[in-house]
């Protein structure tokens, strides 16, 4: 008897390719979206509305962005809310210096002294961060990154929680990362073109659902661009593949249910106790590689480059 899963659909392509957040470059691509909807057994519209509700409970309730008339204290609170949101979900910690930089950058943009980053600029910045990081990835970092992905029942890994970019073995991924590093070091334009396409897709996807579910917080980003803090949040979401949905309480309940089912003890290695990020209970990615001080500094630089 064959189980319905693991989601293995017809492979459309196999080819070296990307990855973004995570050392992943290269991958097999399957068209899984239709399969996911089918396997979930719920009409897409119903599923979408449910997802929007989960977004409102997550990023919609737990983050407060400041506005044009906000005080410094309110801007500081908004930075703290984003930092806390990310930390609680992924164990990625915003340092004090970074907090101050974001407070300053956010204030500049909200007061109109700096322009918002367009979505194209945001995607370009993410590509630059990836290419730079890949070019400087050590063998040890690459190995750790690859091992951070949790294996599927078939022993393969996937860089996206939805597996929309497909699966590959750790051996295949190792080769792809090595190739990507080589291309990055050479400054290969083809790699950037492919990464740009993937990054644009990732950013556009998030912008689409965030603006639809939370128009007050994200409704204007399609037309006006993003503030530094919004850019950080989208970058975090892309790197960790955290959809930003569900409150921390909901995530805790989901993780508790998984632990109980798996009879997992607290001492068991490979699980951080957080939902996302490195060794995330729900989905694990080597996010720390692409979400570090250097990456955030580059993001802030791009934001500051948006002269009025």
């Amino acid at each position: 008897m064959k189980p319905e899963k693991p989601l293995r659909i017809s492979r459309l392509i196999y080819s070296g390719l990307i990855f973004l957040s995570l050392a992943v470059v290269g991958t097999a691509i399957w068209r899984t979206s239709a399969r996911q909807t089918k396997s979930a057994g719920i009409p897409q519209e119903v599923g979408k509305e449910r997802f929007y509700q989960q977004l409102r409970k997550g990023v919609g309730s737990e983050i407060r962005f400041a506005g044009a008339r906000s005080s410094r204290a309110e801007i500081k609170n908004s930075v703290d809310s984003v930092a806390n949101f990310i930390y609680q979900r992924s164990s990625l910690n915003m340092g004090d210096e970074t907090r101050q930089q974001f407070e300053s950058a956010e204030q500049s943009v909200l007061s109109g002294r700096r322009a918002r980053l367009s979505l194209d600029q945001l995607s370009d910045t993410f590509v630059e961060i990836m290419v730079d990081r890949l070019a400087n990835l050590s063998d040890d970092e690459a190995e750790k990154a690859i091992n951070t992905f949790r294996a599927t029942p078939n022993g393969e890994v996937t860089s996206r929680a939805s597996a929309k970019w497909g699966f590959m073995t750790r051996g295949e991924l190792t080769k792809q990362v090595a190739a990507a590093r080589q291309w990055s070091q050479r400054g290969d334009q083809s790699l950037k073109v492919v990464l740009r396409q993937m990054m644009t897709e990732e950013v556009r996807e998030r912008v689409t659902y965030l603006s639809a579910a939370l128009p007050e917080q994200f409704g204007r980003i399609n037309a006006e661009g993003v503030t530094p803090l919004q850019a950080l949040l989208i970058g975090y979401s892309v790197v960790t593949d955290d959809p930003l949905s569900d409150s921390q309480e909901d995530l805790n309940a989901q993780m508790a249910q998984q632990r109980m089912l798996a009879y997992r003890t607290r001492e068991q290695a490979g699980y951080s106790g957080k939902a996302y990020g490195p060794n995330g209970d729900l989905f694990s990615t080597p996010a720390q590689l692409f979400f570090d001080k250097a990456a955030v500094h580059k993001l802030l630089e791009s934001a500051e480059g948006g002269q009025k």
């Binding site: 319905e4 693991p6 897409q44 939805s162 996807e205």
Partner: peptide
């Protein structure tokens, strides 16, 4: 429009 949600069947067996 791919709703970005985690499908548990990615990392587990499903029936």
């Amino acid at each position: 429009c791919i709703v970005n949600s985690i499908d548990p069947c990615i990392n587990h067996c499903c029936i």
